[in-house]
Write a protein that binds this DNA or RNA. Sequence first.
RNA 1: GGCUCCGUCGUCUAGUGGUCCAGGACGUCUGGUUCUCAUCCAGAAAAUCGCGGGUUCGACUCCCGCCGGAGUCACCA
Length: 479
Amino acid sequence: MNIVTRFAPSPTGYIHIGNVRSAIYPYLLARQNNGKMILRIEDTDRARYVDGATELIEDTLEWLGLNWDEGPVIGGPNSPYFQSERKEIYLAWAKKLIEAGRAYADPTPPEQIEAYRRECNEKKVPFLYRNYRPKETPEWEIGMPLRFKTIPKEYDWHDEVMGDMHTGPEVLDDIILIKKDGFPTYNFAHIVDDAEMGVTHVMRGVEYLSSTPNYLALYEALGLERPKLVSLPHILAPGGNKKLGKRDGAKSVTEYREDGVLAEAMLNYLACLGWNDGTEQEVYDKEELIKNFSLDRIQTSGARYDETKLLWLNGQWIRKIFDEDGAETLFARTDGFWPEAAKTASDEYKIKVLSIIYDRLKTLSDLRTMTGYFFEDPEINLDLMINNKFLKKLSEAELENLLKQTINKLSGLSDWNAEALQDALNDLLQETGKKPAELFSLIRIAVSFAPFSPALNLTLEVIGREKTLARLNAVARAI
RNA sequence: GGCUCCGUCGUCUAGUGGUCCAGGACGUCUGGUUCUCAUCCAGAAAAUCGCGGGUUCGACUCCCGCCGGAGUCACCA
């Protein structure tokens, strides 16, 4: 079978992390089987439509590396890919239903339906419109809601994730096919589209599981073959057990991107939230995910979203890229994440900084807060020095003296490189009789005034002879 | 309330009747890597497998009941 999957979002805003997974899995399945993935925009709800949302969605997918084969901009044999532009298609299918006596115009005013519903609620009985089906119905025309005339019965089906399913007739109802405004409902439109577009695997969140019998009834009435149904469990909010949504502060993928999370890490994390291949591997690149993905290893229960692990994975990816692809490759990804002061610095210099600091990064934006002293002289803050746990025992005279000895030693250095610096530092340890904790802390703070820095010799090497000595002198004078 | 789904360390999970007094990862804690922070390495704590019954020589794994959580019952998707 030639596999065709689709991602069919509504353009109601950005895609948050709770949703992306329903794009990732269809993508993986399609790529694994040499199939196709379609992007379809479900914009039948005009009230919720948000301008620019489609572009935002496409942008997010592209960033994650989830390319699709057919869709709005690129087109394809099943064009158009906006549901709002496919009204005649739905109409044609609806007519078939009407002619077969399986759909009818609903003349009941909304207030009346609301009253029925209240009545049922009071009686604690489920509300089913079909129990109030009018005997006489007008001929349907645009401007009236069109309802499906269901035939209540039991349904059995297989969900690729949830397994064998069964429901009784009580879940079937006369669902609305076409709304008063002439647009189809999701319930109707997606069935028609999936069939027209040849979608073989319908992958979506579990929230659609309970309406599946109604879809099954529709496939039947339309004479359509059932696609494979794949229910994806929810991603749960960190705090409670509810599914993660924008109300829980679910961030958009774009926000993570701006915070310096790599697409690789995001894809890796999300793909493995609720899916695993049974091995103990944690870090997967896209190709590995495609290769190892399988529907039957998708989890049946919801998975809680854990940002800490995402960030850990991001650190892993930062190191992986640096170690495997080199400093330049990682550097190419750091654009926009450097501190203001780095603006005038050369790429060469920034790569040097990156090379000694990359293993401390959780996100790329850490660069902004962690590398300032490489690009501008730090503000002298003697408190930081005097209150340091190793330095507070030393008198100011001693500190000044140590600084001067350091300056002497370092200025006499013929080669300014990591090795020579380490030798000089070691000599200094001997000559002063100080512990590394004291001497090194002093120099490190004097040169950076930062809470932490890479190894001292590397830090000094990158900062350079001139600036190192100038900073040490400035501090010695300030004491 | 009806219907449906789900239930293993704090979290993500491995586990398809014996090799599991339950394994890995994140997080936490401890130690090591000449200062710091991080990486890396080593180690520790952490799950009476939701509860109760069965079936079986034997159950996290099969069956039943219960409890808990979630989803859904829109002219939203």
